[in-house]
């Protein structure tokens, strides 16, 4: 029948469960390997600053003197390039998005 061809789909949705989530009341489950944000195990970091040089968006800055590893979350594109380059394997990609920041250019610092 050329009329109401969508009726099966919409009636199934009407009596079934919605396809959407009541986010954020119901948190989203991330699949393994989803690129969310970069995490650092700063204890094992050698501050070689290779990640800083590899980062395509210049989101990272490493200070060898003060032993501070900084990331600008708004610049980071979660490309995993730094984690691949890290010789100490202390950088890793975690699922889930990083929390909101209050001003652009604000960096997150990790002290050794």
């Amino acid at each position: 029948m050329p009329f109401f061809t969508i009726s099966k789909t919409i009636l199934r949705s009407l009596f079934g469960r919605p396809a959407t989530l009541m986010y954020p009341a119901v948190p989203r489950e991330y699949v393994e390997g989803s690129r969310g944000h970069i995490e650092i195990a700063v204890e094992s970091c050698s501050f070689c600053s290779l990640c800083q040089r590899k980062c395509p968006t210049e989101a990272l800055s490493v200070d060898r003197e003060t032993k501070i590893w900084k990331i600008d979350r708004l610049r980071c594109i979660a490309c995993n390039f730094c984690a691949e380059a890290c010789p100490k394997k202390c950088l890793s990609m975690a699922t889930g998005y990083s929390p909101a920041v209050t001003s652009p250019g604000e960096t997150e610092e990790h002290h050794a």
Binding site: I10, L11, S13, L14, P18, A19, T20, M22
Partner: peptide
């Protein structure tokens, strides 16, 4: 509400 349910939303 019903429209939303028909479209697969809450």
């Amino acid at each position: 509400r019903i429209t939303a349910r028909m479209q697969g939303r809450f």
